[in-house]
Amino acid sequence: MSATPDEITDLFTGELSATVRRMGDGPVAGGAPPEELVQAREAVWEMLGDLGLLHRVTDGTETPQELVEIAELMGRSLYRSLYQDTAAAAELIAAHGTAPAHRGLLDAIADGSAAVALAPRSAGTDDPAVPGALRLSDASGVLRVSGSRRFVPAAHEAELLLVVGTVPDGIALALVPADEPGVTLRRQYEISRGDFHAVELTEVPVLGGRLLTTPAQAVTAWRRTVARTRVRQAASLTGLAQGALDLAVERVKQRAQFDQPLARHQTVAFTLAALSARITAVRVLVEETAHTLVQRPDDELAACQSLFLAAELARDCAAQSLHLHGAHGMTEDADIQLFFRRAAVEALLWGTPAQLRASAADLL
């Protein structure tokens, strides 16, 4: 039985799902998204807050089943937002935030009025589990942070940035307001036409005057956050694969060759059946991993394995589904090209295949 509210299921799989898919398709270089899509994104985010999804994250009542189902629904509709980053930040703040400013943030996150973007990379090829270098200073009695971050999702929509970086005695977890004068954003363009930004931080005051926790303690905290976020991403990629397969099935029923629907050809039918079987297998693995992390939050190996298989599945499913659409699938009018482009980027967001293999090998 599903643990997800019907309103969320209807939003991401019902009549509005086609609109939600297009919401995450950003403009080409130099362009701006249509105003109606901006308003639609704001309306969906407000709905998530009204339905209490983030409240369940902040108060620790989100179940593993809910985590997986919600992430998969969002991936299936290609919903692009700061939900995943904000959920990860909320879990860190709830577990480690000690300053009054930190605790007050949880209520704002819960009702959807504060979104947080994670910023761990100093280069696009960085493994997010191994954050880039960060500089801290407190010469004037105020703790400040400086550094460069790349491919920060939807930084222009975030009220706060959770900047994660390596420092001499561990890892720094620094919350900074996104509108501080020392914060500079520059949009980065890539194949998925997402909302990624390069962020430059120059002596930016840290919220509350202190880090979320000590650098030594933050090492374990961040590794656990990465593991849990990788499970969310794996669920999202499983949903992406399912969404691509749904479009492929619909297309081959309509597209005819040799005087019969393409779906009647054995090769096509077997291809779709194999993809469906793989989706079911990965979905079960991801659900099991989500439950495992409740009992063993340090089980990074299971998270790496789940994300590796889900990422491979998403890329394969999107590519096969695009192929079954024919030349039409590569046009702007076809939604399947959205899945293909998004899979290329989303599959690497929380670790490339090489990085996940290396992490898994170290954990064996």
Rank of each mutant, 00 (worst) to 15 (best):
M1P: 07
P5S: 03
I8M: 10
T9C: 00
T13V: 09
E15V: 12
S17T: 13
T19I: 10
G24W: 11
P27M: 07
G31Y: 13
A32E: 14
P33V: 09
V44Y: 03
W45C: 08
D50R: 14
G60P: 06
T61Y: 12
P64I: 09
E66L: 15
L67H: 14
V68S: 04
G75T: 04
S77C: 10
Q84M: 11
T86K: 01
A89E: 05
G97I: 03
T98H: 11
L105D: 00
A110F: 02
D111L: 05
A129N: 12
A139P: 00
L143S: 08
R150S: 04
P153R: 10
A154Q: 06
E157K: 09
A158Y: 09
L162M: 10
P168M: 05
P168D: 09
L185D: 07
R186E: 14
R193V: 05
R193A: 09
D195S: 11
D195A: 14
E200H: 15
T202V: 11
G208E: 04
P215S: 09
V219E: 15
T220C: 04
A221H: 06
V231Q: 00
A235C: 08
S236R: 15
L237G: 05
L237W: 03
L247I: 03
K253Q: 12
Q257D: 03
P261F: 04
V268N: 06
A273V: 06
L275I: 08
A277F: 12
A281H: 05
R283K: 02
R283A: 12
R283E: 05
R283G: 01
T289Q: 13
V294S: 14
Q295D: 15
D299G: 13
L309G: 01
A311F: 02
L313Y: 08
D316Q: 06
C317L: 02
H325L: 00
A334E: 05
D335E: 05
I336C: 06
F340V: 09
V345R: 07
E346H: 15
A347M: 04
L348E: 12
L349D: 11
W350L: 14
T352E: 07
P353D: 03
L356N: 07
A360Y: 01
L364P: 06
